[in-house]
Amino acid sequence: MSKKNARRAQAGSGTATLEAPADNPRRPCSCGSGRRYKACHGSADAADLIVPRPFAGLQAETELIALREFVPSATTELTLRDGVVQTPDQAEAAEADAQSRRVLLTTVLPGAAAALTRADGTVLLGMQVQTHSGDLSRDVVAALEWALTAGPSQVLSVVGRATEGPRLQDVLVDGPLEVTVHDDFSWWLEQPAEPGSEVAASLERANQAILPTKRVADRPGAYWVDAGDRAHLRWVRPEDEAPLMAALARLAAADELGLGEGSRYVGSFRAHGRLVPVWDLDRDAHPSEWDAPALAFEERLQRALASDEPLTDAERRARDGILGRQFTLR
């Protein structure tokens, strides 16, 4: 199926934007916070409110979190639905233009910009930006809407702090993302930089700061990173935290939480409503050597998730120990 046909086939399956309930602003806000709309995204300080799971409902949620939080250099092409531009006086022309333009979601752009347009019309959107509101999903789409109506070779440094408008859930054809991890930032440039130029020097500085990163077992949200003195596996998990913690506790009590020789489970962190387990790995092992152990761990994890037996005393102690090694990213 072509991308355009796929967009049309999915056109009615989106998540509603965060707007006031038509008949009662006292109803729960659609961002999922549990607060009433008038006290949440209908309040005066709505731009500062945190949407706990900005990418909830998207198949690519774990990948989006990884790109936002810890993957240094990566790109993925987005497939947009028809009619994503909502500006009335520009909608018709912009919609026709949008469907013929490439849109690349990236980890970070030069200067941590929110978006830029290339001379050929390609749109690049940055996930790791200078400033953001409490809803990262809406911020990305605000940058997208700017880019789809901007001229070639333009840069949007920051987005405004809007409290209304579409989100990624509203404009994407939902599905997995094909992420390409890059060894450097040469994809920033449309043509090679002149040797010795300021652009070349800036690119070299950015490249020197990259921690080598590879996908593991082609699993969504799972990335190997070389941190210098050691390597890590960071794996954004799609499960809700309570059942995932219980499953990890079962594995820990059975001494099955590691990835085999040369690995050690060190803890986890929360990011945008999902849990990210982390392992230390033998830095001398090639990243691909962890593919099979990661897949074997996922099999064990799925079996543990399927269990509905109460946790044993040993498993509860293991869960308490795991909980003691958690922190939350904001």
Rank of each mutant, 00 (worst) to 15 (best):
A56M: 07
A44N: 09
A231K: 03
A242V: 13
A6T: 14
H41Q: 02
Q86V: 11
A39M: 01
C31I: 01
V71E: 11
K3W: 14
I322E: 08
Q302A: 12
S43N: 09
S73M: 01
K3T: 15
A56S: 10
R250T: 06
A112L: 15
A6P: 03
V158M: 09
G151R: 12
E298G: 10
Y223V: 08
W224F: 14
A254D: 04
S2W: 14
V71I: 13
L251I: 02
R230S: 14
D313F: 00
G32T: 00
L211W: 06
R101Y: 07
A294G: 07
D97E: 11
L49V: 05
R237S: 10
P110T: 06
R219Y: 03
Q99N: 13
A227W: 11
D82K: 08
Q59G: 06
G221C: 10
T180W: 05
G111Y: 10
A247P: 05
E77H: 07
R219S: 07
L156N: 10
L104R: 15
I210K: 14
Q59M: 13
A206M: 09
S33G: 04
P54A: 05
E239Y: 03
R219D: 03
A143R: 14
G14L: 09
L275I: 00
A246V: 01
E241Q: 01
L248S: 05
L177V: 04
L156C: 09
P238G: 07
A162V: 11
I65Y: 07
F55V: 02
R283T: 12
E63F: 04
A6V: 08
D280W: 08
A209E: 15
R330M: 04
K3S: 15
G32W: 00
S268I: 02
W187M: 08
L144H: 05
P238H: 14
P28L: 00
A147M: 11
D170N: 06
V85E: 07
R53A: 08
F327I: 07
H182F: 15
D308K: 10
H232D: 00
A222G: 09
R317K: 08
V171K: 10
D139E: 00
A113V: 05
E69H: 12
L233V: 03
D218P: 06
T75D: 13
V84H: 12
I50V: 11
H272W: 01
E145C: 07
E204V: 15
P25V: 03
L125E: 02
W235A: 13
A47G: 04
R317F: 00
R234C: 09
